[in-house]
């Protein structure tokens, strides 16, 4: 995922090289993953960017197009990757992902089983959490999807700690070779209750399972089947509310035009401030925040359970 120096230390100071994956940042809601290749170029509404101009620059640099437009080149992280990956399925986002990693008690060295792989959004974060000595085994019954995920993991550089297999986990359960070896298991399946008995066999003592389901009926059935082998069964819903920030000039008696600096919606406002950086008079103004108008209302329910300790 990340550029590392010879001592395996994560180092952002390393300069961009041929073949690197960079995240091209236009705006917080407009980014793209690009593989750097000397001979190619990137074209967007700001003009044409030659990759050869990027090589040798540090990550985090601002680079210019032929027309003087600019973008930033960022080092990829699982969070940025989640925003740019190609959606082959519905994906998990940062709120759910971060909560899952903590609640599954994943630390470096852990073995984690996941099904299905989907677009690999969560998988990338799981890989970061178990690295460098652990491993994520992820399963999807869709052959082509698994292949695309494998390609993605190759691109993002996590393929050495992620193994993608094609398997119908709901129908066949997890492979026996993992029995008693998994520290944590994550299920994102339409009928997770079919897999729960197999998951119980795979987990280590006191290991934690998480099942993600969009519908409450799925949760209901999963919880019933969890009762047999699991304890500490808890279901959560997590959402993120984002805020828009704008500056309000207090010395202006006229309400509308010219009175509000940056009164445009956040999305349009962000660029002029970052780009041209119009000088603002801070003395006579105050900064205000309010929740963004549009928000995600539901992703799914997260049900966690801990393997009962019987031995």
């Amino acid at each position: 995922m990340l550029p590392t120096d010879p001592e395996k230390r994560i180092s952002f100071t390393r300069c961009i090289r041929e073949g690197d994956l960079v995240i091209v940042y236009e705006r917080h809601d407009c980014m793209k993953a690009v593989k750097v290749c000397k001979s190619s170029s990137l074209q967007n509404r700001f003009g044409v960017f030659k990759h050869s101009d990027w090589i040798g620059k540090p990550f985090g640099s601002k680079v210019f197009s032929n027309k003087g437009g600019f973008v930033y080149l960022l080092a990829p992280t699982p969070e940025l990757w989640t925003l740019v990956l190609s959606h082959r399925t519905q994906i998990l986002y940062i709120a759910d992902i971060s909560f899952v990693v903590t609640y599954l008690e994943i630390v470096p060295g852990c073995v984690v089983l996941e099904s299905g792989t989907g677009s690999g959004s969560l998988t990338t974060s799981l890989a970061r959490a178990v690295a460098p000595t652990g491993h994520v085994y992820t399963f999807d019954f869709h052959e082509q999807r698994a292949a695309s995920a494998r390609e993605d993991f190759e691109r993002t550089g996590v393929s050495s700690i992620v193994t993608v297999d094609v398997r119908d986990i709901q129908g066949q359960g997890f492979p026996d070779e993992f029995a008693g070896l998994a520290d944590s298991i994550f299920l994102d399946l339409p009928q997770p209750w079919l897999t729960i008995p197999s998951a119980a066999k795979m987990l280590k003592q006191d290991g934690v399972l998480c099942s993600f389901s969009p519908c409450i009926e799925q949760v209901q059935r999963s919880c019933e089947s969890l009762l047999l082998n699991f304890t500490d069964i808890r279901t959560f819903e997590i959402l993120l509310r984002t805020y828009e920030v704008r500056q309000w000039k207090t010395d202006c008696s006229r309400g509308n035009e010219g009175g509000l600096v940056g009164s445009l919606p956040h999305k349009r406002k962000q660029h002029p401030i970052e780009g041209s950086g119009e000088p603002d008079n801070q003395n006579s103004s105050s900064v205000m925040a309010r929740p963004s108008g549009e928000a995600r209302g539901h992703t799914g329910y997260l049900t966690f359970a801990r393997l009962k300790c019987l031995s």
Binding site: A95, F99, V219, Q220, C223, I233, R234, T235, F236, E237, I238, L239, L240, R241, T242, Y243, V245, A289, P291, Y301, T303
Partner: peptide
Amino acid sequence: ITEPWLREYQV
């Protein structure tokens, strides 16, 4: 700026 919201369920 984000604010997380967490709700637990009795199932």
